[in-house]
Simulated scan of single mutants.
Amino acid sequence: MVSHGDKSEDAVVSQHQDRPISTVVIITAAMQTEALPLVNKFQLTEDLESVFPKGVPWVRYHGVYKDLNINLVWPGKDLTLGVDNVGTLSASLVTYASIQALKPDLIINAGTAGGFKAKGAGIGDVFLASECAFHDRRIPIPVFDTYGVGLRQAFPAPNLVKELNLKVGKLSTGDSLDMPPQDEASIIANDAAVKDMEGAAVAYVADLLKVPAIFVKAVTDIVDGEKPTAEEFLQNLSAVTAALDQAVTQVIDFINGKCLSDL
């Protein structure tokens, strides 16, 4: 993970390139529906003595899969309203706390996303994000405008992309499910193939704390299609979650026994 003008990626690779990846943190999107299949797949156990601060709703599942210590962290449900903790605020907090507590070698942000048919996205497609940026932090002041976009490169994984035949595209993140004209203009400027509600926040924290991060996104709805986003999202969530589950399993199997430089 590296921002423009930063050499942190080189530092991370040189520091860890000869050491097999041992500890992985999977930061799931906020929907519990997207987290539980992976919990079952890797036979993870819920942490009953939380490593997180007392009172927060975040949930950690953990276990050993092959040679990897797997931690899956789900932001949980809002303590007042009982809905899933969606959005960038929970994502950034959970990522920060997970890095501090678990010291991962690699972060995988796994979740669903809207896709753009203009960029070749179809329902059920799985993308590995090449970079992440925000589309709803508009600060029209020199330099602050670039800060608002918050562009971060994902950790490069060309061998992973080739082996699993994943699509690659840019990810744009915002805190709203809909896409008003201002957001649309920013997403187009970001050249995004997929949009979500947490990726760029995870990328920001991973870059800040110098932890490599990759982003696996499965398309539930076509943003520039004919159907209403919310309707299409709910209609396809179950099937696309299965595709995401399969892709993340393949990613984990691929990185097992490998170093960061092998990705």
Rank of each mutant, 00 (worst) to 15 (best):
I107S: 05
I107T: 03
I108D: 08
I108K: 04
I108E: 02
N109P: 08
A110K: 09
T112G: 08
T112K: 00
A113D: 03
G114F: 00
G114P: 00
G114N: 01
G115A: 09
F116C: 00
A118M: 09
K119D: 07
K119Q: 13
K119C: 07
G122V: 02
G122P: 03
G122A: 15
I123S: 06
I123F: 10
D125A: 11
D125I: 01
V126T: 11
V126C: 11
F127A: 07
F127Y: 14
F127G: 06
S130T: 15
F134T: 05
F134K: 09
I139V: 12
I139F: 15
I139P: 06
P140F: 11
P140V: 11
I141S: 13
I141M: 10
F144T: 09
T146C: 03
T146Q: 13
V149M: 14
V149R: 14
L151E: 11
L151P: 08
L151Q: 12
R152L: 03
F155C: 07
F155S: 08
F155N: 02
F155A: 07
P156Q: 09
A157N: 05
N159P: 07
N159W: 04
V161Q: 10
V161Y: 02
V161A: 06
K162D: 14
L164K: 02
N165Y: 01
L166G: 04
L166F: 13
L166N: 02
K170W: 02
L171S: 04
L171Y: 00
G174W: 05
L177G: 04
D178M: 13
D178N: 10
P180N: 14
P180I: 10
P180V: 14
P181T: 07
Q182A: 10
D183H: 14
D183A: 12
E184N: 03
E184A: 14
A185I: 12
S186E: 13
I188Y: 00
A189F: 05
N190L: 09
N190I: 06
A192E: 09
A192M: 08
D196G: 02
G199R: 03
G199W: 01
A200F: 00
A200L: 11
A200Q: 09
A201R: 00
V202D: 07
A203N: 11
A203G: 13
A203Y: 05
Y204L: 12
V205Y: 09
V205R: 11
A206E: 01
A206S: 15
L208T: 13
L209W: 13
